[in-house]
Simulated scan of single mutants.
Amino acid sequence: MIEGLHHIQLAMPFGGEQRARAFYINILGFTEVEKPTALQGRGGVWFAAADVQLHLGVETPFTAAKKAHPAFRVASLDNTILHLQAQGIAHRWDVDLPAICRIYIDDPFGNRIELLEMT
């Protein structure tokens, strides 16, 4: 049945589009994708990187995802950590899994994001 993953959606508070752009574009390297005209009035913002589509939608009242999270593969976790540190972004190590080293960061709204390297 399932052929692939189309997109991931995270929630954000009303009016957070500029903070989302600053983080997802400037820190994580996504590019913004224009939302369809029919959805633009809802707020939020869409991004893409490699084969990943990420949608941030406005949720009221907003609650950050502290456990549920997307996990994005990176080429080098060491280089990613250096980049995050240079940008003032804190990270948390987690237990490595077979063939996976990983950290967690939070987006500007407190949503948990996993960054992982396949080893």
Rank of each mutant, 00 (worst) to 15 (best):
Val58Lys: 01
Leu10Glu: 04
Phe62Val: 03
Val45Phe: 06
Ile100Thr: 11
Asp78Ala: 05
Ile100Ser: 03
Leu5Phe: 10
Phe23Lys: 01
Ala48Leu: 00
Gly43Arg: 02
Leu115Lys: 11
Ser76His: 14
Asn111Val: 09
Arg73Gln: 08
Trp93Thr: 07
Arg92Leu: 12
Phe14Ile: 13
Gln53Cys: 01
His6Ile: 07
His83Ile: 11
Thr63Leu: 14
Gly41Asn: 04
Asp78Trp: 02
Lys66Phe: 06
Ile2Ala: 09
His83Arg: 15
Glu34Gly: 15
Ala22Ser: 14
Gly29Thr: 03
Phe47Gly: 02
Phe47Arg: 02
Pro36Cys: 00
Asp96Arg: 06
Pro36Tyr: 02
Ala48Phe: 04
Thr119Val: 11
Asn79Ser: 15
Asp51Cys: 09
Pro70Ser: 07
Ile89Trp: 06
Val33Cys: 05
Glu117Ile: 12
Phe62Tyr: 07
Ala68Gly: 07
Gly29Arg: 02
Leu39Gly: 04
Pro36Gln: 04
Gly110Asn: 13
Ala65Cys: 09
Ala50Arg: 13
Thr119Glu: 11
Tyr24Lys: 01
Arg42Cys: 10
Ala64Ile: 02
Phe109Met: 09
Thr60Gln: 14
Met12Ser: 01
Leu84Phe: 07
Lys35Pro: 10
Thr80Met: 11
Gly16Pro: 08
Met118Thr: 15
Arg21Tyr: 11
Asp96Asn: 09
Glu117Ser: 13
Arg102Gly: 09
Gly16Tyr: 06
Cys101Tyr: 08
Phe109Ala: 01
His69Asn: 04
Val33Asn: 10
Met12Gln: 05
Leu77Thr: 06
Ser76Tyr: 09
Leu39Met: 14
Ala20Phe: 08
His55Pro: 04
Leu84Met: 02
Phe109Cys: 04
Phe23His: 02
Leu97Met: 09
Gln85Leu: 10
Gly41Ile: 01
Ile113Met: 06
Ala75Thr: 11
Thr80Cys: 12
Leu82Cys: 02
Asn26Gly: 15
Pro36Lys: 12
Lys35Phe: 07
Arg92Ser: 10
Leu82Pro: 03
Ala38Trp: 14
Gly43Asn: 05
Phe14Val: 10
Lys66Arg: 13
Val52Arg: 10
Thr37Lys: 15
Met1Arg: 10
Leu54Asp: 02
Thr31Ser: 15
His6Glu: 15
Asp78Pro: 02
Ala49Leu: 13
Ile103Met: 07
Pro98Arg: 13
Phe109Ile: 08
Asp106His: 12
Gln53Pro: 05
Gln9Val: 13
His55Thr: 10
Asn26Pro: 13
His7Gly: 01
Ala22Glu: 13
Ala86Met: 08
His55Glu: 00
Glu34Leu: 14
Phe72His: 01
Val33Thr: 14
Met1Glu: 14
Leu82His: 12
Leu39Cys: 09
Gln87Ile: 01
Ser76Ala: 14
Asp106Leu: 13
Phe14Asp: 12
Thr80Phe: 10
Gln53Asp: 03
Leu116Lys: 12
Asp94Thr: 11
Leu116Thr: 11
Thr119Pro: 12
Glu59Ile: 15
Ala99Glu: 13
Glu114Ala: 04
Phe23Ile: 01
Glu59Val: 15
Ala65Thr: 12
Leu84Glu: 00
Leu56Thr: 00
Phe72Gln: 01
Ala65Trp: 07
Phe62Trp: 04
Phe23Asn: 01
Phe14Tyr: 11
Arg19Leu: 06
Ser76Trp: 13
Ala99Tyr: 10
Asn26Met: 04
Ala64Leu: 02
Glu114Pro: 09
Arg19Trp: 01
Pro61His: 03
Phe23Ala: 00
Glu34Asp: 10
Pro13Tyr: 08
Pro98Cys: 08
Gln87Leu: 03
